[in-house]
Design a protein around this nucleic acid. Structure first.
Lengths: 409, 409
DNA sequence: CGTTCCTGTTCAACCGCACAACAAATTCTG
DNA sequence: CAGAATTTGTTGTGCGGTTGAACAGGAACG
């Protein structure tokens, strides 16, 4: 959200500085390392202004001066000094909550994974138990953090519906959770008080792929996630499509075949009953206890079975509806759709071409995630970092330093 | 677009002034008349700053000072002077192109329709013929415009797919148009050179209902348009959802019943084959030549026939998919869905409640258009006015004055 | 080796908004 | 009915942020 959507407010000069500093940091974050000269042309500001902003970031301990990288030297002229993420700079904790495991990582600006840990999670486990496991992983991951580095916040990716106003997990079908305040649970288990952001895993996958994956520079992007359930995250105009409550993107229950199998939502023939994990597992005779690892199971296939081909066609046909509705430029296939697409890509493309309207079809591309299976994890880092780009000074002012000591006490 | 989405640019003071002046004008536009005191609290700026901005608008001839309105006086203190749209202020031409008629209006800031005209249009007519008719209507509508009032631009609502990059009409099925540069045709017929904006009718309906209809203050809104074809306009985060090419919102070809009737798009059982105008006309034995006036035909009904009830259920069930996908706060039913909903609202609501997920369902409301059948027309005015809110000075600088004389010559 | 080209640095200037003080206009209160 | 209280318009000053010019630094080019 380069320019945050203000609700008809005016702008004063204080806001300018905030905005410019945040935008500058967002560019550094996106590129990892970038020269001042590039920044001036990207942001359309004067050299001296950029110099001032960069200086402020350095004095905040966020970035540091870097000599120009070797090679890639173009043209004459004095080489421009680089801006690089500081080694002891701010970081966030990202949590990717899956139905059978949790992944936790410490992630710095630029999307660098500094440390990671994972643990199995009992599906149908109580929320407080899962919260305790996650808290333990967080402790492990903060272990080696420099004491001076500030913790900006925690971002959590959730396989379910998350209310955007307060981050309450309204429904996580495959964890059998209803109305769980998981953010509060984790904070209580840690004994910390830092900003926590929660969001749907597909939404975060879309965000991450947009920022540093297969959709860099693409402002109309959809991430379709196959993860037991089927969901989508939508980026439009460069921003996440959240909906009024935060529940947008529930494509799993699109009407697909009114005479089809019953769905757990109470209807018949939802798309999920054709391309959901349980449906695919049944089609390839995968034992029910391995449904959560469907991605690996599919990756083990050499050639697609006829049943998988049918599934591929159904996937493509369903994607057609999404393409007609959103007219995206890129559709990223995440979760087990990744290995499914490598198996039956032809059928998927055929199904899509068959059912999509010509105009939206001609501008869309199907793509595999540029971040592999880490998209939701990195998306969780992104939402946790977000305050830094809105107001770096304020975000760092309220960030937590010397986290290890606080966790010990 | 209160704060336009800048693509990672920086902000300088020149941009501040532009933005604040545009935002101020947007508020005046939205409210029609508003006091300076309200503006200060809405925009969060200082009294003196607002005074300066208002003064600039007055010297631009856009607004004028108004005494406080009678009544509605609250509390003590000096009454705040009002800001009102100037009588000879800027205006735009709005065109609502239908399948059987065209409506043209001269519309000023505040959405005031100053003059309007309409004429039948031969469906399947050549584009240049329709363009000539529209040009004649425009001439009629500019007839009584004050010579000093500047024309900012022309906005055209089109029942079809419009490419957003250049406004080309890619496909208007019910006009049988392919790749028509209708904006250029109208300008050529007029012999003028002013900015022309074209967009899909449902998109513009959504925009108008968001600005001054049933969705004021609602940032997640969908306008579903029944207009021979079925389409949707989506507002999310307060902005129009356009998609990569501008084709987003094609809900008519959502898969509804795979065994259903063939659709002109080449597939079977698209939603449009159940709730489209031709389907409804057939269900109520309406003669084919009156399909374009289905709205009036339906309004003549006293009680719903069983066939209409079935249609109502199908409408509700299809809306459920949209509600699941977008999680809107308000869904406005435009076009002939307006009279259909008044007839079989119960069935629509039941179908929706049956198929929508609980979480998105609880936050959504179905509503009738607050602007009647004028939504697309007023939306066309909105997109034509848009440049004024981005940069009032520049937009007025390039606006056309004394249009009548130029048209005569 | 000098020229050319681009960038970093510094400083004065400009522009826009905030703030304070005062005047104006209305309501409230005794 | 008169004075106090309240809110707003107006004016001048000050502050903050960006700009632009001038100069210096550093690398490639001829």
């Amino acid at each position: 959200m380069s320019p945050q959507r203000r609700s008809g407010l005016g702008t004063n000069q204080e806001a300018i500085r905030r905005h410019n500093l945040g935008t500058l940091l967002r560019h550094v974050h996106g590129a990892g390392q970038i020269s001042r000269a590039e920044l001036t042309s990207l942001m359309g500001l004067n050299r001296s202004t950029i110099a001032g902003l960069v200086g402020e970031l350095e004095s905040l301990g966020v970035s540091e001066r870097a000599s120009a990288p070797e090679g890639a030297r173009q043209g004459a002229g004095r080489p421009s000094a680089g801006v690089r993420i500081a080694a002891d700079g701010p970081y966030v904790i990202a949590v990717d909550l899956g139905v059978d495991r949790a992944v936790v990582a410490r992630i710095g600006l630029g999307g660098r994974v500094l440390q990671r840990a994972r643990a199995p999670v009992h599906s149908h486990g109580e929320a407080w138990q899962v919260g305790a496991s996650v808290a333990a992983l967080i402790r492990a991951v903060v272990e080696d953090a420099p004491a001076a580095a500030p913790l900006v916040g925690i971002g959590i990716s959730v396989p379910g519906l998350v209310r955007r106003s307060d981050g309450l997990i309204r429904l996580a079908p495959n964890l059998e959770w209803h109305d769980v305040s998981f953010g509060g649970i984790v904070l209580a288990a840690l004994g910390l008080d830092v900003p926590v952001s929660l969001a749907n895993d597909a939404d975060l996958g879309a965000l991450a792929e947009h920022t540093r994956g297969a959709g860099v520079g693409v402002d109309e992007l959809i991430y379709v996630s196959g993860n037991v359930g089927v969901g989508a995250g939508v980026i439009t105009g460069g921003h996440r499509l959240e909906g009024a409550g935060g529940y947008a993107g529930e494509i799993g229950h699109l009407r697909f075949n009114p005479d089809g199998r019953p769905c757990h939502c109470g209807n018949r023939g939802c798309w999920e009953t054709e391309v959901g994990a349980h449906a695919i597992a049944e089609a390839i005779s995968c034992p029910p206890d391995k449904v959560a690892q469907l991605d690996e199971v599919l990756a083990g296939f050499d050639k697609p079975s006829p049943a998988l081909r049918v599934t591929g066609t159904a996937l493509g046909q369903g994607l057609a509806s999404i393409v007609n509705l959103f007219n995206p430029q890129v559709v990223v296939l995440g979760g087990y759709f990744r290995s499914l697409y490598t198996l039956v890509g032809a059928e998927v493309n055929a199904g899509l071409a068959d059912r999509a309207l010509p105009a939206p079809l001609e501008s869309v591309t199907l793509a595999l995630p540029g971040l592999g299976s880490d998209s939701p994890l990195l998306g969780a880092a992104e939402i946790a970092l977000e305050p830094l780009f809105v107001d770096p000074v304020a975000a760092l002012g309220s960030a937590l330093v010397d986290v290890r000591a606080r966790l010990a006490g």
